[in-house]
């Protein structure tokens, strides 16, 4: 099982570096830009706060963009949230289906390895990649924060990044489950799903009638503005996220274990 885990870690290491450098690098630069933009941000804060639904959607009505926390939540939070969800989709979208798509299933599953163990090894590799991506990005963000003096509520920062990891696990779990049922690579579908969930969260925050339904998107409990402004976990959304994550991985496990492998 560890052999498959190691193999999958190696397979996606380039994706990890590309996405990590892009997301972490952009976030790092954004943080560094804050000091030069701080003055203009102060004048923009009031106008952003008065933008109504738009400000609500991006959390600018809850936090001042003129503070590092507010700037981090609205700017870095958006970049990291979107790129994290997309990276989670990329590493999980073809994790199982690639064995049939690339005709490698006959090689892999003719080795003395229970299919369920292979699924577990692959899911462990997905989680490891997500953790590594987040650690890499967080290291760059922290470097940026400390370069600016290191003034930040770190409890809320770590809470936000913890919830981001959970959100990315959920997105990855859903894509992993889709992958178990597919025989072809569905990267487009998985990326689309990640973006759709993000868009749904934005809409649910803007449309008052949908406010009660925002928990259906994993972005609801991993929203930077909410977490930085309140410091509290959105329990309903988190609980549903955990249920969806567990159900998705379990369904992938069962479905792939029973599947007739195409060659």
């Amino acid at each position: 099982m560890f052999t498959i885990y190691k193999h999958e870690l190696k397979e996606y290491v380039k994706s990890l570096l590309v996405w990590g450098i892009c997301a972490g690098g952009i976030g790092f630069l954004c943080i560094l830009l804050f000091s030069s933009m701080q003055e203009s941000m102060e004048s923009m804060t009031e106008s952003f706060a008065s933008m109504g639904l738009f400000a609500d959607a991006f959390g600018m009505s809850q936090l001042s963009i003129a503070t590092l926390e507010g700037f981090y939540a609205t700017e870095v939070g958006t970049i990291h949230g979107l790129s994290g969800a997309m990276f989670a989709a990329v590493v999980s979208a073809d994790m199982l289906s690639k064995e049939e798509d690339g005709h490698t299933g006959e090689f892999l599953f003719s080795l003395p390895l229970k299919r369920e163990k292979a699924v577990l090894a692959k899911w462990s590799a997905v989680m490891s990649h997500i953790l590594l991506f987040n650690l890499f990005c967080l290291s760059l963000y922290l470097a940026g924060i400390f370069a600016l003096g290191g003034e930040m509520d770190f409890c809320r920062l770590f809470l936000y990044h913890g919830m981001q990891v959970l959100m990315q696990f959920e997105v990855a779990g859903i894509c992993f489950c889709i992958s178990a049922f597919q025989r072809k690579n569905k990267l487009g579908l998985s990326l689309g799903l990640a973006l759709l969930l993000y868009a749904y969260d934005l809409i649910a925050r803007v449309v008052p009638d949908l406010a009660g339904y925002k928990l259906f998107s994993p972005f609801s409990y991993a929203n930077a503005s909410d977490l930085f402004s309140t410091g509290e976990i959105y329990m309903e959304g988190t609980a549903l996220g955990l249920v969806v994550l567990a159900a998705s991985v379990a369904a992938a496990h069962v479905a792939y274990g029973r599947k007739d492998l195409a060659v």
Binding site: H7, F107, L113
Partner: peptide, 20 residues
């Protein structure tokens, strides 16, 4: 299945491996 595959060597007709 696992016990059997430990003692079996299989060559598929379409021999495909991980290209990287």
């Amino acid at each position: 299945r696992e016990g059997i595959l430990r003692e079996v060597g299989y060559l598929p007709s379409e021999t495909m491996f991980y290209p990287k």
